[in-house]
């Protein structure tokens, strides 16, 4: 594997100029968490309309893979229902950022795990609209 396969253009572009970076305030939902052992973390804020994600932003801290994939995820989930987001698979991320990222799955999947964990808990208990410290 060459470095430029792992750090392909999609990842570097999303890392250097991340889409949807920031915070929606006030937000309908807020989910944050991360990987304690390496210190990477991400927080999503969401606006919902008709059970669909109308807008989503993220803030994060970590390596290029985790931040790039956390950012790219925002584009995937916009306009989707909670059910549709919960049905996303790890492969949906790898299809975008490349198979080589499987070697760093914890980074590549940081965003999707935080978002899906938050949404699943919210679905079970609609009162849970703000969750911090989702652990990976």
């Amino acid at each position: 594997m060459e470095a430029k396969e792992l750090y392909n253009e999609t990842i570097l572009k999303a890392y250097k100029n991340p889409l949807n970076k920031g915070k929606i305030d006030p937000a309908d939902l807020e989910f944050g968490g991360g990987n304690r052992s390496c210190g990477d973390s991400v927080t999503y804020t969401l606006k919902l309309k008709n059970n669909k994600v109308e807008d989503i932003k993220f803030e994060g801290h970590g390596c290029s893979l985790s931040l790039a994939s956390a950012s790219l995820l925002t584009e995937i989930v916009k306009g989707k229902t909670i059910e549709e987001i919960l049905n996303l698979k790890a492969q949906d991320i790898y299809d975008i950022i490349g198979e080589t990222a499987k070697a760093r799955s914890k980074c590549a999947l940081l965003g999707i795990i935080v978002l899906q964990t938050g949404l699943a808990r919210h679905q079970k208990n609609p009162k849970e609209t703000k969750i911090e410290n989702v652990k990976i």
Binding site: A3, C63, C107
Partner: peptide, 14 residues
């Protein structure tokens, strides 16, 4: 400001 994990990953490919 390259994250150390990214540096280590690039080194690993070498």
């Amino acid at each position: 400001d390259i994250h150390p994990h990214d540096v280590a990953s690039v080194l690993d490919t070498h």
